[in-house]
Amino acid sequence: MARTSIMQELFVRVAIFIVAAAPLLRVSEASKMCNGGRLTYYVQVEIGAPNLAAILPPINAPLSGSFGQATVFAFNVTDGKSATSKPLGFVRGFTVETNYISGADIRLVEVEFLEYDDGRCKGTLQYQGVVTSQDSQLAVVGGSGSFRGVRGNVVVTVVSSNGNFRTYFHDVTLLT
């Protein structure tokens, strides 16, 4: 009888441990599924939509380009190219124009915050890097939720431009 009682107590302790650890296991599984993987989504942009901007004059007007114009932005993230496709979240952030040479291509330092939920992966990612008028690459500098502890990169490509509306494709590679 004593042996049965010890076995029952051991069984109860193991069951309590498993129940207590279950939330940690779910986070770990979600993190593994979303980290070390790839995300793709579209960002819907309306050019000229209300934003906050501050403009600093060029450092040396005859020689340097614009420097310091800052823009705060907020855009929707979708599953498909169409603005009416399934919403996955949003991006918020800011850019600061950093041109030095007058007449050169636009160069912006961008810091971006993505809140993402596709039903499988849910959390935030933070990006930063230089954005140009062509395709750009930004660094993934961290995340939360399913993306906790990630690093990686995102390649941003313009996929359509129609009047004041642009759609960008984000191809994100996540590393643990």
Rank of each mutant, 00 (worst) to 15 (best):
M1S: 08
R3Q: 09
L10K: 04
F11H: 07
F11C: 12
R13I: 14
A15P: 00
I18Y: 10
V19Y: 12
A20D: 05
A20F: 07
A20R: 04
A22Q: 03
L24G: 14
L24F: 12
L25I: 14
E29S: 12
S31Y: 01
L39C: 06
L39I: 03
T40Q: 12
Y42R: 09
V43H: 02
Q44M: 08
V45R: 05
E46C: 00
E46V: 13
I47L: 08
P50R: 09
L52H: 08
A53N: 10
A54Y: 15
P58Q: 13
P58D: 09
N60Q: 08
A61M: 13
P62S: 15
P62Y: 10
S64G: 04
G65Q: 02
S66N: 14
F67H: 01
F67L: 15
G68Q: 07
G68V: 10
A70Y: 03
T71D: 09
T71F: 05
F73N: 01
A74S: 03
N76A: 13
N76E: 13
V77Q: 02
D79A: 10
G80D: 12
K86P: 00
L88V: 10
G89F: 07
G89S: 08
V91G: 06
G93P: 00
T95N: 03
T98A: 04
N99L: 05
N99M: 10
S102D: 13
G103M: 07
G103P: 04
G103L: 04
I106L: 01
R107E: 10
L108K: 09
V109R: 06
V109M: 01
E110R: 06
E110A: 06
E112G: 05
F113Y: 12
F113M: 09
E115V: 14
E115Q: 15
D117Q: 12
G119Q: 07
R120D: 13
T124F: 01
V130F: 02
V131N: 08
T132E: 03
S133H: 07
Q137D: 11
Q137P: 02
L138K: 03
L138W: 02
A139I: 13
A139C: 07
G145P: 02
R148Y: 08
R148M: 14
V150Q: 00
R151Q: 13
G152I: 02
G152S: 06
V156W: 03
T157F: 01
V158N: 05
V159Q: 07
S161F: 06
N164C: 03
F165M: 11
F165N: 13
R166N: 11
T167R: 13
T167I: 11
Y168H: 02
H170T: 02
H170I: 00
T173P: 00
L174Q: 01
L174R: 01
L174P: 06
L174V: 05
L175D: 14
T176D: 15
T176K: 13
